[in-house]
Design a protein around this nucleic acid. Structure first.
Lengths: 253, 253
DNA sequence: CAGTGGTCTAGACCACGGT
DNA sequence: CCGTGGTCTAGACCACTGA
């Protein structure tokens, strides 16, 4: 057995390119360094620009490159590890720096969220918008959905839709005793509003972390956090172990 | 301020296409149904095939479509929730069905893994290859790296590199008392060998789950599991809550 | 303003799956 | 074998950034 690598099939050009460039990145480029522009690179490798771009796209997906319109393509630093749910049973924002309040409104949640809350389809809930910043750059945009029933002391039109309201909702939440959480991670593409906050183009790959917070057997809140997939490695520290160090080379090993 | 949605900029065609098709999927198509082929669709929408493909690619990334060469494009079912680390402090394979042993060899791990193990750079370790199957299809390919020091009772050339050897390694592991785990999730693209096992093309987007297992203060094993990003939603059940139901609509809400 | 990446076109051929 | 999606080309124009 051991069908290790017969590779009877001709490798597509863009995949070979990807390997070549990837190796060049390891040996000949420093983090932050600017690569030649796409037209020059394509010419240098003797391929069409579209083909070159296919290779660059995958390298960007893997967090090896960073491309910005009007600027150029640079060598990306190793992904930063962002902690997700390290200390369980703690309300969002509790002593948690790194999250920056952006807005607080009252809206009807999307159907998928309404399903997770045990709420009616058209019932408006509190929505707290937050932005997570790490190492100086935005890494995640979060929408925290809180049904009115979870924060009964908050009157309907308590604060005039803004950061003040967001603060009020979070303050109320922290009075509740959190029983547990439930988390899911999946791949998605950035909605245009998230993309703006994350300084990416709409459609950029993101890791969507959906968290349900349980109080008294019910779902008291749902958080949908959109993390930049290119720059982030989500860490789940179950034990009190050391913070995870850099790692790379998940492909083309 | 509320820069909600001025959208002064013309929306690219492929993004508009994506919205249109996405809505059509919700209203006019059933799961598993086959879409018209790309040439017809492109003609119908009055765009070049490449542009149509850009829209389809993103929809596939979001798990809404499934495309297979030689077959066609079908409407994908909702992502399945696969549990990752629901019951912590348990060795891999312990009563854990769903993982299917594939191979067991002895190899030098990639540098990134060697760094996580407290091992020397060129020291060979046991490598157990496993495949996770859920709902009848492969969802993850795992490489479990176990330094010889973690399983001292295993002689160097104990079994002739195969499933028997894999079983022996796992059996030894389960004798150890696991102290904790440490998990990280990041986006990657499938290496060609993983791609084969997962029935995808090389380069397909995957969620890479790296787990470190701690015994006696040391890293006794490292698992690198590659999950299909298109079909999987990784779930982390911290509480004994109900299994997560379907959810969708992470974008274009 | 010049230079970058992002979008788009209208073709072509290839690799694969089923018939 | 035919029809599918996958790869590739050689152009073109647009949107954005920074000088």
């Amino acid at each position: 057995m051991g069908t290790t690598q017969l590779e009877t099939v001709p490798e597509p050009k863009y995949r070979h390119l990807k390997t070549v460039i990837s190796e060049a990145l390891d040996s000949e480029f420093a983090v932050g360094e600017i690569l030649p522009n796409e037209r020059d690179l394509a010419a240098r490798f003797g391929v069409a620009r579209a083909t070159l771009r296919q290779a660059l796209e995958q390298l960007e997906l893997e967090g090896r490159l960073q491309r910005r319109r009007g600027v150029g393509t640079t060598v990306a630093p190793p992904r930063m590890g962002v902690s997700v749910g390290s200390a369980a049973h703690r309300w969002p924002g509790a002593a948690d720096a790194a999250w920056e309040l952006a807005d607080g409104v009252r809206e009807v949640p999307p159907a998928s969220v309404a399903r997770l809350l045990d709420a009616a389809q058209d019932e408006p809930v509190h929505v707290v918008r937050r932005l997570r910043v790490s190492e100086g750059q935005p890494v995640a945009a979060e929408l925290l959905y809180v049904p009115a029933a979870s924060v009964p002391r908050l009157a309907a039109a308590d604060a005039p839709s803004g950061i003040a309201r967001a603060q009020a909702v979070l303050r109320e939440l922290q009075g509740l005793s959190l029983e547990g959480e439930d988390r899911a991670v999946e791949l998605g593409s950035a909605r245009s509003d998230d993309a703006k906050q994350l300084d990416r183009l709409p459609g950029a790959p993101v890791l969507i972390v959906t968290t349900r917070y349980f109080v008294a057997g019910r779902t008291a809140a749902v958080s949908v956090a959109t993390y930049r997939a290119d720059t982030c490695r989500l860490t789940f520290g179950d034990s009190g172990a050391v913070e995870v160090l850099h790692s790379q080379e998940h492909s083309t090993v």
